[in-house]
Amino acid sequence: MSGTGAAAGLRVLVVDDERPALDELAYLLGADDRVAEVLPCGSATDVLRLLREREVDCVFLDVQMPGLTGLELAEVLSRFKEPPPIVFVTAHEQHAVEAFDLRAVDYVLKPVRPERLAEAVRRVLATTRPAAGEASSTDGGGAQVAVERGGVTRFIDRSDITHVEAQGDYARLHTTGGDSYLVRIALTTLEEDWAEAGFHRIHRSLLVALGHVAELRSDAGRTTVVVAGTELPVSRRHSRGLRDVLVRRAGGR
């Protein structure tokens, strides 16, 4: 849904029903050299009306709004043929997991700090224009995942996730530090969404981050991988494909 071209700055749609907050966010974004135009809107209705006539590169969106909430509006925008990247800007921490379920690029808390907003713009550029945003390749770096534990929302780097384990309709993310987090996302969804970030299915209930695989072991027809010191089973149907992709990544034949 990009309308500014690769060499031009971003055309940003800013949405907030509170005028002071809308004006401040529009001002801060307008001061960023990477932003060419800021289009302010005070409601979801205004957004949908504007998008019939204009194209935008991304949407900075409040969560709590009358009528359609920001989350509901983001769901509507996700059905567009070319959905714009979404950055949520809100005073409410508790909606972060829902926001990232909707594939938000970032989740910025109010009061907004200019340096934090600048990071959100960088992440938008990494999504829409990888060269300008200095997006990482297939190691998963740069992307963050919102997780909850004990009522606290944390943002962990996807590059720190070593493997993912299915637990019903949920998935448990295991990290390099030994921590694990349960998220409300199916393993099949993560397999599709994170494939380009180097996550590979090795079992009906397991994905591994290829960059964290230290060893591939075969013994008496049984294949396993060692990831961050943990040995994980590889199903027979996935063992050949895993071996091939690991050899290719290592530059072998």
Results as ranks from 00 to 15, higher is better:
106 D>Y: 00
84 P>S: 04
202 I>N: 12
125 L>R: 01
228 A>G: 11
72 E>L: 10
251 G>I: 11
32 D>M: 02
93 E>H: 12
176 T>D: 08
236 R>M: 04
134 E>A: 13
106 D>W: 00
58 C>Q: 01
210 L>P: 09
66 P>Y: 12
100 F>D: 06
97 V>D: 11
226 V>P: 08
179 D>N: 14
117 L>V: 13
217 R>I: 14
96 A>G: 11
118 A>E: 10
131 A>E: 10
236 R>E: 08
79 R>H: 15
59 V>A: 03
90 T>S: 07
64 Q>W: 09
119 E>A: 06
202 I>G: 08
203 H>K: 05
59 V>N: 05
215 E>T: 12
162 T>N: 00
29 L>Y: 00
86 I>Q: 03
128 T>S: 04
181 Y>E: 00
27 Y>P: 03
141 G>A: 14
167 Q>T: 11
101 D>R: 12
141 G>E: 14
158 R>M: 11
148 E>R: 14
216 L>A: 09
207 L>R: 02
49 R>G: 14
215 E>I: 14
125 L>G: 03
203 H>G: 06
2 S>G: 06
165 E>C: 03
145 V>L: 14
53 E>L: 11
44 A>K: 04
96 A>I: 12
69 T>F: 00
97 V>H: 11
111 P>Y: 11
178 G>M: 05
133 G>L: 09
205 S>P: 05
165 E>F: 00
117 L>T: 06
145 V>Y: 09
16 D>T: 00
73 L>F: 00
80 F>G: 07
4 T>C: 13
24 E>S: 11
126 A>Q: 08
232 L>C: 12
39 L>G: 02
53 E>S: 10
87 V>I: 03
204 R>K: 10
83 P>M: 00
48 L>R: 09
160 D>M: 12
251 G>K: 03
187 L>C: 07
30 G>K: 02
116 R>A: 14
39 L>E: 02
214 A>N: 07
95 H>V: 04
238 H>W: 15
129 R>Y: 06
78 S>D: 04
42 G>M: 07
148 E>Q: 15
23 D>K: 13
182 L>T: 10
178 G>F: 04
64 Q>N: 15
169 D>T: 12
162 T>Q: 05
244 D>S: 10
120 A>S: 13
11 R>G: 05
87 V>H: 01
15 V>D: 01
174 H>L: 05
246 L>R: 09
248 R>W: 15
169 D>K: 06
175 T>K: 04
92 H>C: 14
88 F>M: 03
41 C>Y: 01
68 L>V: 01
142 G>A: 05
163 H>L: 06
72 E>V: 11
121 V>M: 02
123 R>G: 06
21 A>Q: 13
185 I>W: 09
12 V>A: 07
236 R>C: 03
144 Q>V: 13
164 V>F: 01
169 D>F: 07
162 T>R: 02
61 L>D: 07
118 A>F: 02
9 G>A: 04
156 I>A: 08
71 L>Y: 08
6 A>I: 12
6 A>F: 12
174 H>E: 05
220 A>C: 11
131 A>V: 10
226 V>G: 06
64 Q>D: 14
19 R>W: 14
219 D>E: 14
130 P>S: 07
135 A>S: 08
253 R>I: 12
4 T>L: 10
71 L>F: 11
25 L>I: 08
147 V>R: 06
208 V>C: 05
74 A>W: 01
23 D>M: 09
